[in-house]
C-alpha cells in the first residue's frame, strides 16, 4: 500500500477547476481545509440517526464518525454528537433510534455539530453504509450555511460489497447489513447506535479493501 500523499491537482485537471469553483462558493473561509488533497491511507466512516426516513425533510438528531488510519480504526478518538432538531421528531422514527424529544433536547445546535463534524472529517474520503441517505440529509443542512455540499469523495460499503459479490451467476446480491456482516464473518454490533453503525461500516471497508485473499 502506497504511503505517498496524493499530489495536489494540476491546473490541467478537471479536479483543479472543480476545487477552484467550490472554493469560490465557500461561504466560510475557515473550512477551506475540506478542499485540501486527501491524506494517504485515511478515511472517515460516518452514520446519522434522523428524525424521519424521508431525506427531503429528515433532520439529523445524532451523528457519529470514526477515522480509519491504515488498517486501524481509531475508536479511541471517535466523534459522537447529539443534535437538537429544529422541528418535532417523527413518532415513527423514535422506536428505531431510541431517542425521545427530551433526549435530543440536550443536543448541540445544528451549526455547532456540523462544524465539529467537518473538522473531524477534514479532506478524508467518507465511508458509510447506504451513505447516499446520510449525505443527502447532511448536505441539505450544510448547503445554505456553508455554500456547498461536502466535497469529499464518498465510498459506500454496500457498493463495494456489491462489486465484490456480483457475477453473472449471482446477479442478485443481498445488501442487508446483517447479511453483509455474516458473509464477511464480521461481528454484528447493536444496530441504530450511530457509532456502532459507523464502526461496522469501517470494518466492512477494511475487510473489503485490505484483504488480498478475497476475490
Amino acid at each position: 500500500m502506497s504511503q505517498r500523499p496524493i499530489p495536489a491537482p494540476s491546473p490541467l485537471s478537471l479536479r483543479y477547476w472543480r476545487q477552484r469553483w467550490l472554493r469560490s462558493r465557500l461561504l466560510k473561509a475557515e473550512f477551506d481545509f475540506l478542499l485540501a488533497s486527501e491524506p494517504a491511507q485515511e478515511w472517515v466512516s460516518i452514520d446519522c440517526e434522523t428524525s424521519s426516513l424521508d431525506p427531503r425533510n429528515a433532520e439529523i438528531i445524532s451523528i457519529a464518525a470514526v477515522r480509519i488510519s491504515g488498517r486501524r480504526i481509531v475508536l479511541s478518538n471517535a466523534l459522537s454528537l447529539l443534535i437538537k432538531p429544529s422541528g418535532v421528531l417523527d413518532p415513527k422514527s423514535i422506536p428505531i433510534h431510541g431517542l425521545r424529544a427530551q433526549d435530543v433536547a440536550q443536543g448541540l445546535a445544528m451549526e455547532d455539530a456540523l462544524s465539529q463534524l467537518l473538522h473531524f472529517i477534514g479532506s478524508r474520503p467518507i465511508i458509510g453504509y447506504y451513505l447516499e441517505f446520510d449525505l443527502a440529509v447532511i448536505n441539505r443542512q450544510l448547503k445554505p450555511w456553508l455554500g456547498m455540499a461536502l466535497p469529499n469523495r464518498a465510498i459506500d460499503v454496500s457498493g463495494l460489497y456489491y462489486d465484490r459479490m456480483v457475477s453473472a451467476y449471482n446477479p442478485e446480491v443481498d445488501l442487508r447489513l446483517e447479511r453483509i456482516l455474516h458473509t464477511l464473518d464480521l461481528p454484528a454490533l447493536a444496530r441504530h447506535d450511530p457509532l456502532n453503525d459507523a464502526l461496522m461500516a469501517a470494518m466492512i471497508f477494511l475487510k473489503l479493501s485490505k484483504n488480498p485473499n478475497m476475490t
Binding site: 488498517r71 479511541s76 469501517a202
Partner: peptide, 12 residues
C-alpha cells in the same frame, strides 16, 4: 474503553 482501537489483519 475510551482508549481502545480496532485493527484488521487479513489471514496470513
Amino acid at each position: 474503553i475510551r482508549q481502545i482501537d480496532i485493527e484488521y489483519h487479513a489471514a496470513g
